[in-house]
Design a protein around this nucleic acid. Structure first.
Length: 592
RNA sequence: GGCCCGUUCGUCUAAUGGUUAGGACGCCAGGUUUUCAUCCUGGUAACAGGGGUCCGAUUCCCCUACGGGCUACCA
């Protein structure tokens, strides 16, 4: 590996773009040229050139002015692919907590692993957050610009900071260079394994921990690649209590590993970037996946070494799925439903996803929603205390569907039309044409049993359901199969059907109110030997050919091909008399 | 393997050293509504197992089982 390139210190010009007005070039820099001792010479070799002093950096990022109780949270994804549903969950919780306390929510792109970086992933994250109504106060914008005065918000642009603080650790002997090759480390690991000792770089296994300055200088002059390791003074035998806002107090072991804080490519590892960034950016509450829980003692240790106050931590359990009889974390590679784009393609409204996730976060959300059906879900106060600390929830599509239907049922016909059309344009061109070409008709269809005084119906859970609801309203897609018709009309004699339909056509008046209309249906029922209500029929079934429900079913099936549809009276009126009569006549003809 | 963390109806979860262990989704059954839905009522179903401590444990402690995480110059 070429070290020259990685050792190049990011120019101060990058720093001065940060937007604080001061020109960082004016800042006094540490002078490494005196080379008063071997240690200085080592550090100079490690970090040739100028770096700002730690104080100068912290001076540029003063602590945020916050109201008491205000939380500064962030989402810090690595741009390695599409947005994960778990990431959206963490973002949602973080954003609500920040905004509900009068704090700040920002986005930081953790792109220190160049091998895994995926082109365009950062923009995708941005777009997803925006679409789901997660309001980012500070961070990168689509196209590369940034907002906020605590940036840069991409770790790849923050090299100077990491280097400066690594250097300060070196100066205080809290860090040291390590020249082990990957092969050496691998060898060490297998040796540890064969001897059944705990693997890792610690204690007497920390080969470069106590090398003499001469040895280090010698390697350096040979231009060997190196990493910088943190010198841990922890003892694995000591337990510390880590306060976790979600899971409660946890007893964990101190860290005794001399972990890598700066890789040989000059970029920091997650652990080090985390403490530098969250300190400088003023994060008060770090909300992250619980795979980080066990490394929290290390992070606390790093904060202490830097002399900084650590944030509060809250670790979220992953969302899981059932595979066979065991549950596992939703995996980007294996599970399409791990991606937020999956829900978009399926046609779930963004609000429904948010409400489902809110439910997962604080299960009392559903009670709140029940008592506040009209309110924006932003008004629901999320709290750390009520965040579920256990297990990790299985993703439950039955529940999502219910939440989704409930959500859509609160929308007006216009909203359903607009959002549905927007979805169709991206995912179902045929449906988009249909909706776009017949806006008034489609809106009237969607308005059936919607927006009235009673609760709206809940047929539509996903935008993709709209197609089914429209199908029978259009002649070119109304093609009920023979089978549908026979099962739909099962138990009804063809001659009964014919006379009922004839009677209907003879008496129908489109000006009838629904009450008048149904009186006629009842009359038709009675005249044809059907009971005019269910009770009458139940009492003496043998006296009737069926009841009024059967009569209604005849029309429902004749007009829609289905046995379950919205209110018949409304359907007939939306369809229009002409179409209704056509279909009824066709049926009379076909049945001979 | 080692070290951590966890386990309440099928699912999401609530509560508690003494409760008929509560709610929601699903499912089932009734009911209201002119029909289909909506809606209403009811039902189904859980403290992983075993030991302690205690008058009493789902709750506290220990063990086992199971699940999850970490164990990288990935995050």
């Amino acid at each position: 590996m070429k070290r020259a390139e990685s050792q190049e210190v990011v120019s101060f010009a990058a720093l001065s773009e940060i937007g604080h007005g001061n020109d960082i070039n004016d800042m006094p820099s540490q002078d490494n040229s005196t080379q008063s001792g071997k240690k200085d010479r080592i550090i100079e070799k490690l970090f040739p050139g100028k770096l700002p002093a730690p104080d100068e950096i912290s001076g540029k990022y003063p602590s945020r002015k916050l109201e008491p109780g205000a939380m500064v949270t962030r989402i810090a994804p690595s741009p390695t692919g599409y947005m994960h549903i778990g990431g959206l969950f963490a973002a949602l919780v973080s954003e609500r907590l920040a905004h509900q306390t009068g704090g700040v929510f920002y986005l930081r792109i953790e792109d220190t692993d160049r091998k895994r970086e995926v082109e365009g992933a950062a923009d995708m994250i941005l777009t997803s957050l925006d679409r789901y109504g997660i309001r980012v106060d500070e961070g990168p914008r689509v196209g590369g610009e940034e907002s906020g005065s605590y940036g840069p918000y991409r770790q790849s642009d923050r090299s100077v900071f990491y280097k400066t603080y690594v250097k300060s650790l070196l100066e205080r002997d809290l860090a040291y260079p390590c020249f082990c090759t990957p092969e050496e480390l691998e060898e060490m690991r297998s040796m540890q394994e064969s001897r059944s000792v705990r693997p890792g770089y610690y204690g007497q296994w920390a080969k470069w921990r106590d090398r003499t300055e001469d040895e280090v200088l010698k390697e350096l002059s040979g231009n060997r690649p190196f990493v910088i390791r943190f010198r841990s003074d922890g003892d694995i035998g000591n337990k510390i209590v880590v306060k976790d806002e979600v899971k409660g107090d946890k007893e964990l072991s101190e860290n005794d590993q001399d972990i890598v804080i700066m890789k040989s490519d000059g970029l920091p590892t997650y652990h080090f970037a985390h403490i530098v960034d969250d300190h400088l950016m003023g994060t008060t509450d770090v909300i992250r996946g619980d795979e980080w829980l066990t490394s929290t003692p290390l992070h606390l240790q790093l904060f202490e070494a830097m002399g900084w106050e650590p944030p509060r931590y809250g670790h979220l359990s992953p969302i899981k799925k059932l595979e066979g009889s065991s549950r596992r974390k939703l995996s980007k590679r294996k599970d399409p439903e791990a991606s937020v784009s999956y829900y978009d393609v399926q046609g779930y409204p963004e609000d429904a996803i948010i409400e489902y996730l809110l439910n997962l976060a604080n299960s009392n959300f559903e009670d709140w929603r029940k008592t506040n059906p009209e309110k924006d879900n932003r008004e629901f106060l999320l709290t750390f205390e009520r965040l579920s600390g256990s297990g990790g929830a299985l993703f439950d599509f039955a529940k999502l569907d219910d939440v989704s239907k409930e959500t859509v049922s609160r929308y007006s016909a216009d909203t359903v039309y607009e959002k549905g059309l927007e979805w169709a344009k991206a995912h179902d061109p045929k449906l988009a044409d249909r909706m776009g070409n017949n806006p008034d008709y489609v809106k009237r269809i969607l308005n059936i049993e919607r927006g009235g005084t009673t609760k709206n119906r809940k047929d539509i859970g996903k935008w993709s359901d709209i197609g089914n609801e429209l199908e029978y309203f259009f002649d070119d897609t109304f093609h009920p199969s023979e089978e549908e018709m026979t099962t739909g009309l099962s138990g009804i004699l063809p001659e009964d059907m014919k006379s009922v339909i004839k009677a209907f056509m003879a008496s129908y008046d489109e000006k009838d109110t629904s009450e008048e209309w149904f009186e006629k249906i009842k009359t038709i029922a009675r005249d044809n030997g059907f009971a005019e209500n269910a009770k009458l029929f139940k009492k003496n079934p043998e006296l009737f050919r069926g009841n009024v429900a059967d009569v209604a079913r005849i029309f429902r099936v004749a007009l829609t091909g289905k046995t379950r549809t919205p209110d018949l009276y409304s359907i007939i009126h939306v369809m229009g008399t002409e179409r209704v009569f056509e279909r009824l006549s066709a049926l009379l003809r076909s049945e001979g």
